[in-house]
Nucleic acid binder design. Structure first.
Lengths: 112, 112
DNA sequence: TACTTATTTAACTCAGCAGTTAATTAACCT
DNA sequence: AGGTTAATTAACTGCTGAGTTAAATAAGTA
C-alpha cells in the first residue's frame, strides 16, 4: 500500500486519532494510552502497530515499557495533500456565500 | 461511523483520491471517471458511492448521465483536523533542523 | 527462584471492503 | 416497439481489520 493510503487509513479510526491527540501532548506508554478506552490491551496494542506501520508513531524501550512518540512527517504529508484542494474549497465557500447573499437580495423566492 | 472517519477512510484509497483529483478539474460522468482505471464499471460505481456517502461528492441527473461534482466541506474538515498538529510537526522539523546543524558544527562524529 | 507488571503474540470470530460477472433499470434514438 | 448507451444492483469471492480471550515474552522486585 502506498504511504499516503496507509496514513489515511490509520487515521480513519477514532480510537487511533484519540491516541494521536494524546501523544501530541508527549510520550506515553501502552497502558497509559489504553486507559481511556473500553477495550482490551491487545486491541490497543494492535492500533499502535497500525500507527507504527504508517510511520505516525515510533516506539522506544525503557525497561518493560515501550514509550510511544508521535512522528511528524506523515501528518505533514496529509496536510500537503489536502492543501492542494484549498483553492477549490475556498472557491466553493465563496460561491456559496455569494449565492446566499443573492438569495437575501432577491427575497426568499425559491432556488431556481 | 463519525463523519471524519468516513471521510478519511474514503480517501484512504488511491483510486478514490484519483477520482477526487479529476473532479477538482470539474464535473464528470461515471464513464469518464472510470476510463483511466483498469477496473470494471461497477467497481468504479462502488467507489463513487463510498465518496458520496462520505459527502465528498454529489451527483446530479442529466438524461442517462449522473454527473459527479466534488464537494468542499469534508476536505476542509480534514484540513482543519490536521491543522491542529501543525505546531507539532513544525516544531519537530525545527528540532530536526537544529540537530542537523549541530551535527555539522561538531563534524561527523557519530550520533550521541 | 518465584511473583508481579508491561506488552505482545496466537488463535479465533465477525463484519465489511474491493473486486468480479451477470442481470436490471433508465433514458435516449430510430 | 426495439436497440443502444449509461449506470446501478445482485450475488458471489477473497482479503483485511477490529475485537475477543488465553498464552507467551520480557523485565523489574522480593
Amino acid at each position: 500500500m502506498d504511504r499516503l493510503s496507509s496514513t489515511l487509513s490509520a487515521l480513519a479510526d477514532p480510537t487511533r486519532r484519540a491516541i494521536i491527540a494524546r501523544l501530541a501532548a508527549g510520550e506515553a506508554t501502552v497502558n497509559e494510552l489504553a486507559a481511556p478506552f473500553d477495550m482490551s490491551l491487545p486491541a490497543v496494542s494492535k492500533h499502535l502497530k497500525v500507527l507504527e506501520r504508517a510511520g505516525l508513531i515510533s516506539r522506544g524501550r525503557n525497561a518493560q515499557w515501550r514509550p510511544c512518540r508521535l512522528e511528524a512527517a506523515p501528518l505533514k504529508e496529509i496536510a500537503d495533500w489536502v492543501e492542494r484542494y484549498r483553492q477549490f474549497w475556498e472557491g466553493s465557500f465563496d460561491r456559496l456565500d455569494s449565492y446566499l447573499h443573492e438569495l437575501q437580495r432577491n427575497g426568499k423566492s425559491g432556488h431556481d
